[in-house]
Computed example of a mutant assay.
Amino acid sequence: MVTGVHRAHGARLLSQARPRLDLIRRARIPVLVASGGHAAAHERICDALAITLGGERTVHVGAGHFVAAAPGFTDRLDTFLRTSESQDPDPDALQTITLGVVALASPHHSLQAVP
């Protein structure tokens, strides 16, 4: 619980997110969109996201919002990571994505792993 609170501290609302899906697709970054199958609206969003990004889609029930703990997810992620390859990424798209991630870092919101 404490880790979840730390992750959310200073985060923006989901309604404020404006990810550049066009850049991610153009960069040909392998994408796996995972969900827990517990909310029809979320499933439709995940379906559309996978299609938009040209990614793979997986649903793992049994862990609510924490899909990473759902049965079978670890094996599916492992397979995805072992078999996915980027296909001649667009260097301009990758540079734009990288610059966007770097811009997220600030004295108040540094990029760091939370255990």
Rank of each mutant, 00 (worst) to 15 (best):
D47F: 07
H6A: 14
F80N: 01
P19I: 03
P19F: 07
R25P: 11
A70H: 02
P89E: 06
P115C: 10
G62I: 03
A68Y: 15
H42P: 02
F66M: 15
R18H: 12
L104H: 14
T79F: 13
D92P: 00
T96S: 15
L49P: 08
V61L: 11
L81C: 07
M1G: 13
P115N: 06
D88K: 08
M1V: 10
Q16F: 12
T3V: 11
F66R: 15
L13R: 10
P89M: 09
L104F: 01
D78E: 01
A70S: 10
L53P: 01
D92F: 04
A103L: 01
I45Y: 13
A41L: 14
H65A: 10
G55I: 11
D75E: 11
A40M: 12
H6L: 15
L104S: 14
I97P: 05
G54Q: 12
G55E: 10
S106R: 06
R44L: 13
A93F: 02
A63T: 08
H65C: 07
A50T: 05
V2G: 07
G62S: 06
G64E: 06
L77Q: 05
M1I: 04
P89N: 03
V101Q: 01
A39V: 11
A103E: 15
G54R: 12
R28C: 05
A105V: 00
G64R: 04
L49E: 08
L21A: 08
T79H: 11
E56S: 14
L32N: 07
F73V: 09
T52W: 05
L13C: 09
L13I: 00
C46N: 15
A27Q: 07
D47S: 11
I51W: 02
Q95S: 04
A11I: 00
V67W: 02
R26P: 05
A50M: 07
T74G: 04
T58H: 02
F80C: 05
S35K: 01
L32H: 07
G72F: 02
P71C: 10
T74M: 05
P115A: 15
V67L: 02
A68C: 06
P115F: 08
F80M: 01
V102P: 02
P19K: 10
P30F: 00
D75I: 00
A93C: 09
R44W: 13
A113E: 09
R12C: 11
L23K: 02
I29D: 03
V5I: 08
D22Y: 06
R20M: 01
R25L: 12
H60S: 09
A8P: 08
P89D: 05
Q95F: 00
R44A: 14
M1T: 09
L99D: 13
D90Q: 05
T79D: 10
H60D: 03
S110E: 12
Q112M: 08
H42S: 11
S106T: 13
A68H: 13
V114D: 07
H65N: 07
E43L: 09
A40F: 15
A50L: 11
V2N: 13
S84Q: 06
A93P: 02
Q95I: 00
G62D: 03
L94P: 07
H38L: 15
G10W: 04
L77M: 09
S86M: 13
V2Q: 14
R12M: 12
I29K: 03
A70T: 04
A41H: 14
V101R: 03
G54W: 11
E43S: 02
L104R: 14
L23I: 00
S84Y: 03
L77I: 00
